[in-house]
Nucleic acid binder design. Structure first.
Length: 438
DNA sequence: CTCACGCAGATGTATCCGTT
DNA sequence: AACGGATACATCTGCGTGAG
């Protein structure tokens, strides 16, 4: 500023030169505009967020919890006890801890888990500033859950700003140290890689590295996904747990809520997020209980769809539990769901075939042909048995040619392979009886 | 005895889908 | 949007068996 201008300002003279600093009125005007912007509803929020106007409310006033001070710094901590008589949808909290650990080992494809106890499980779910992954995503809320007797405890660790991360992470190390295994929903691909990068960034040891881990997403997809529109946690809650969240904040709104909190420090902004996170953690425990019951056979048979049981049978088969698989499949042979009954017959017959129990396999194939004389699977399997085990070429030819002649829908590939089989059988029968057929 | 073939298990690859 | 686990499907490999 020139000396002449300073003198003018001191004497109260207005300076109107373009590009020069604004005077007091302009600044006041700008301040008003900024304030108005700051008081606007958060971006992407619903109309009900009008309740967040009119001064801010401290976090402690809306969320039961307290500030925790550690040598690493501070963060906010909330603990809730869900007693055994509480219901989560149709599920009673008090039943949760009675989980079959053998089943969990099978679900996690990790037999070590079955050596632990339900009270050794740590349920974990994080809320973050986005999905973009990498080091740019900040896990501001870590929800944890575990069993204490017949009760379920949830603990929530909240970083009120970025500076509280280190204290939160080191407290998480402490909390998880006496838990033997981890249960998450999509945690293998989402929560754990994210936390791993935060531990590295904060030069702390990752407490979850190498810890046993059951990720519920994949067992849910496998055992329940066949009859559901998708296997998102919310869908599983409504269809399996009978729980419908009212007024729940959608996941995509959570990052914006946290950014609003950072600006306004209004505890009411975080209320829904804490609630959402707490329900996620309890739902994980409820789903773990449901899956373990499904595998144990402790659910009322009439309430379980046949297709779920068939999926369990296939899981047992893949894990080498042939006895468990066999008895489930036998129970499904006459399932009212005809599709399930057919699949059960096919799978069980192959199980018998593999074990060398040919008689039992043949009984199933014959039964399938009794119900549908053009059944392709049974026709081909019986033809293989006739050709390779009992050298009954005539019967094999009859089975294959009947499908070829009468089946209304044969893919080009299937037709080709059936014709190939038939030609080979005809060659063989000609060699066996050279005088016939010429 | 050797060769060719059918079958089943092993290995490799593409696609899907859930997380905030 | 980025990521990665699981599944489904395709291709490869090795074994057993029958024909010549």
């Amino acid at each position: 500023m020139k000396v002449k201008d300073r003198l003018r300002r001191l004497t109260g003279e207005r300076i109107e030169t373009p590009g020069s600093p604004p005077d007091k009125e302009v600044i006041t005007e700008l301040r008003k505009k900024i304030q108005a912007i700051l008081e606007r509803s958060p971006v992407g929020s619903t109309p009900k967020d009008a309740r967040y106007t009119g001064g801010s409310v401290r976090l402690e006033q809306v969320i039961t919890g307290e500030e925790v001070r550690t040598p690493q710094g501070m963060f906010f901590f909330s603990r809730t006890v869900f007693t055994d008589t509480t219901y989560h949808g149709i599920m009673r909290i008090g039943d949760f801890p009675r989980i079959g650990m053998d089943s969990l080992g099978i679900l996690a494809k990790n037999p070590v888990i079955s050596l632990h106890e339900p009270c050794h499980a740590l349920f974990l779910d994080t809320e973050t500033t986005g999905l973009s992954g990498g080091t740019g995503t900040f896990p501001f809320l870590v929800g944890l859950g575990w069993f204490e007797g017949d009760h379920f405890i949830t603990c929530q660790l909240f970083a009120r700003d970025f500076s509280e991360e280190k204290a939160l992470l080191s407290f998480l190390q402490e909390l998880s140290s006496d838990k033997k295994f981890l249960v998450t929903f999509n945690g293998k691909a989402y929560d754990l890689p994210l936390l791993a990068s935060r531990y590295i960034l904060n030069r702390l040891e990752d407490p979850f590295l190498g810890k046993e881990h059951l990720d519920l997403l994949h067992p849910c997809r496998r055992l329940l996904g066949h009859r559901l529109e998708n296997t998102r946690l919310a869908t599983l809650e409504s269809s399996i747990l009978g729980l419908n969240r009212r007024g729940d904040i959608p996941g995509f709104e959570i990052p914006q809520r946290y950014f609003d909190w950072l600006r306004r420090r209004d505890g009411r902004l975080m209320e829904d997020v804490f609630e959402h996170n707490r329900i996620d953690v309890i739902s994980m425990a409820a789903i773990t209980k449901h899956l373990s019951d499904l595998l144990d056979g402790s659910l009322a048979t009439q309430s379980v769809p046949g297709v779920d049981l068939f999926c369990v049978a296939r899981l047992h088969l893949e894990r080498g539990n042939t006895d468990a698989s066999r008895s489930l499949l036998e129970g499904l042979l006459c399932s009212p769901d005809t599709g399930v009954a057919k699949q059960a017959r096919e799978t069980l017959s192959l199980l018998h075939k593999k074990a060398g129990r040919w008689n039992e396999a043949v009984v199933i194939w014959e039964k399938m042909l009794e119900d549908d004389v053009l059944d392709i699977f049974a026709s081909v399997e019986l033809a293989k048995w006739c050709e390779h085990r009992v050298s009954d070429y005539d019967r094999a030819i009859q089975l294959v040619s009947r499908v070829l002649e009468q089946h209304p829908f044969l893919s080009e590939e299937l037709q080709w392979s059936l014709e190939y089989r038939l030609r080979r059988l005809l060659r063989r029968t000609l060699r066996k009886h050279p005088t016939e057929g010429s």
